[in-house]
């Protein structure tokens, strides 16, 4: 994405705020504070990060800060680098340039304090494990450990209760529906007792009814941990999160704390659709359709 388009985006965004008779200053002010108030604690800090699997960069010159206690979503097109961004934060990938800091240290050091839910489609659905087996993986740690202790099992059970799957603890993972598998993986991430929760596509394959309870659950969890999720579902995003991180090779952050739901949907829905599409804006800007 060219810098020109970025500027047009921001201009459009600002204009939109003014046009809707909404004080843009609140947003700008929040952003201002974010840039200059260094006393704030950031759980995730990326500075000048570029990464490519081949020579073609997937992410270029990303600067991103996520505050402690934040509830943010990464949105963007397929292949735009959303999962790559998560993997950089987890230290599963090393940036070509720039630095990544998570919970104040390197991603490798922070790992044990981070809960991660991958896209369940990456896992072998035929694997012979029970739900409990999967959640207990969240209790793995270095050092000799022949068996999981009773304490481990209790902790795993508590996490399953949190995602309302306690009664399925002894069922086979392969027998579950997509949405249930996703909740099992969330429980596994919670079982790590994380300070930061990273979720890759938690809303895919979840029916609207379940989405609501997922949403309630995440909001409850947000009281004790920072949450960052990748989502395609802008409707969900606009209801739940406090800021939106748009990723399409480059990263643009929109703080949204002061805005009400419909407006967020309008602005960020429109905004992100703009980022998502490959179409070029005309010189005059962009109009809603």
């Amino acid at each position: 994405m060219q810098p020109g388009l970025c500027i047009i985006l921001w201009a459009f965004f600002y204009a939109c705020c003014l046009a809707c008779n909404h004080t843009g200053s609140a947003i700008i002010g929040a952003d201002f504070k974010k840039v200059f108030n260094m006393t704030k604690e950031y759980d995730i800090e990326l500075d000048g990060v570029s990464f490519g699997y081949t020579r073609q960069p997937v992410l270029s010159n990303v600067r991103l800060q996520v505050e402690r206690g934040e509830f943010a979503s990464i949105v963007g097109p397929n292949g735009g680098g959303k999962t790559t961004l998560l993997k950089l934060m987890l230290g599963l990938l090393q940036p070509d340039t720039g630095s990544v800091n998570v919970l104040g240290v390197s991603p490798e050091k922070a790992r044990l304090r981070v809960g991660y839910m991958p896209q369940y489609s990456h896992l072998d659905p035929q694997f012979p494990v029970t739900v409990m087996d999967v959640v207990l993986m969240g209790r793995l740690r270095k050092g000799a450990m022949l068996m999981y202790s009773k304490k481990d099992r209790e902790a795993a059970m508590a996490c399953l209760e949190e995602v309302q799957l306690a009664e399925l603890a002894n069922n086979l993972y392969s027998e579950l529906s997509g949405g249930q598998r996703q909740r099992v993986l969330i429980a596994r991430a919670l079982c790590c007792q994380p300070d930061l929760l990273l979720l890759d596509e938690p809303t895919s394959n979840v029916d609207p009814d379940m989405q609501q309870s997922l949403f309630d659950m995440l909001q409850k969890l947000n009281k004790r941990m920072t949450i960052l999720l990748v989502s395609h579902d802008l409707g969900f995003v606009s209801q739940v999160v406090r800021s939106v991180i748009c990723v399409s090779r480059e990263v643009v952050v929109h703080p949204t704390s002061e805005l009400d739901g419909t407006l967020i949907k309008e602005i960020y829905g429109g905004d992100c659709r703009l980022v998502r599409h490959d179409h070029r804006c005309s010189e005059e800007g962009h109009c809603h359709d």
Binding site: P118, V129, D133
Partner: peptide, 14 residues
């Protein structure tokens, strides 16, 4: 078991 099921997650658990 953990590595066979999910390599990535196991790496994250150290």
């Amino acid at each position: 078991l953990a590595v066979c099921f999910d390599e990535e997650f196991s790496a994250l658990r150290g």
